[in-house]
Structure formats: C-alpha cells, structure tokens
C-alpha cells in the first residue's frame, strides 16, 4: 500500500487526560500515518461522523474515566448504522481486564491498556485495517 493510513485519534466523553492520546498521535505520525486529531469532549456521533468524512482507516479512542463500556460500543454501532463497518476501531486507557472481552465482542478490534508500547498499537493498526 503506498498511501498513508488515515487514523482518527479521539477523546470521547468528558475526560481531559490526553497525554496518552497525544503520545499515540505523535507515534502514529512518526510511523508515517495521517492522524486526524479531534481534541477533547467528543460525542460518539461526532467521532463516527469525523471518521466517515475523513475516510479514515481506523478510529483510535482513549478514555481514562471509566466510561469506555458505554462510549466505545456506541461509536462502533454508529459506524455500522452508517455503513462504515470497514473502519477499524481500537481503544485505550484505564480499562479493566474484565471489560475487554465485552468490548471485543462489541466490535472494538483491539484494546491497549497502560504500559502498551506504541509500536504494538502501530503494528496492530497496520496489520488489521480492512482496506488495502
């Protein structure tokens, strides 16, 4: 593939801790990707709409507030409703191990908890985006 991978990096919900999201955004850029950064306080609707307009390959979200079980699946569902289920959705943040199977079930392809090297996230996106 000789086009850059396009990734929407978003902070859903009200949580303002964006250190992780920003570090990941930079790492993805340095891996040659085009990162559409949305800033804080995005609703699932805004994130899904952004992903569609930007023709993103991937939506990467970060939540540290514990609202992940509510907000992550909502984004997946909205993308499905809009016929955009070929967009890869991944999430990160403070996410208890117990919640991960449910989130995967709901269609979040990968969950990255604290301590995950950015290279793991990068490789995961590279290997799992659905469009070549």
């Amino acid at each position: 593939m000789d086009r850059p991978i396009r990734v929407v990096v978003a902070k859903p919900g009200l949580d303002g801790h964006d250190r992780g999201a920003k570090v990941v955004a930079r790492a993805l850029r340095d891996a040659g990707m085009e990162v559409i950064y949305t800033g804080l306080r995005q609703t699932p609707e805004q994130i899904a709409e952004t992903a569609i307009q930007e023709d993103a390959d991937c939506v990467a979200m970060s939540i540290l507030s514990g609202a992940h079980n509510h907000l992550f699946p909502k984004v997946v569902n909205l993308l499905r409703e809009k016929g955009a289920d070929d967009i890869l959705v991944v999430g990160g943040g403070v996410i208890p191990e117990d919640d991960i199977p449910g989130l995967i079930e709901a269609g979040i392809a990968g969950i990255f908890t604290p301590g995950t090297p950015t290279s793991v996230t990068i490789d995961f996106i590279k290997n799992n985006i659905k469009r070549k």
Binding site: P4, A25, L28, R29, I36, E45, Q46
Partner: peptide, 17 residues
C-alpha cells in the same frame, strides 16, 4: 516520516455533527 497530524477539526468540533 510522510506522516502528519491534521488538527484543524479541534476548532471546528461543533460542526462535526
């Protein structure tokens, strides 16, 4: 790197919807 951070949407967040 050929990568980019495209951040203009941050200031247009209300328009997303």
């Amino acid at each position: 790197t050929g990568g980019a951070i495209l951040g203009d949407r941050v200031r247009m967040a209300d328009l997303n919807n």
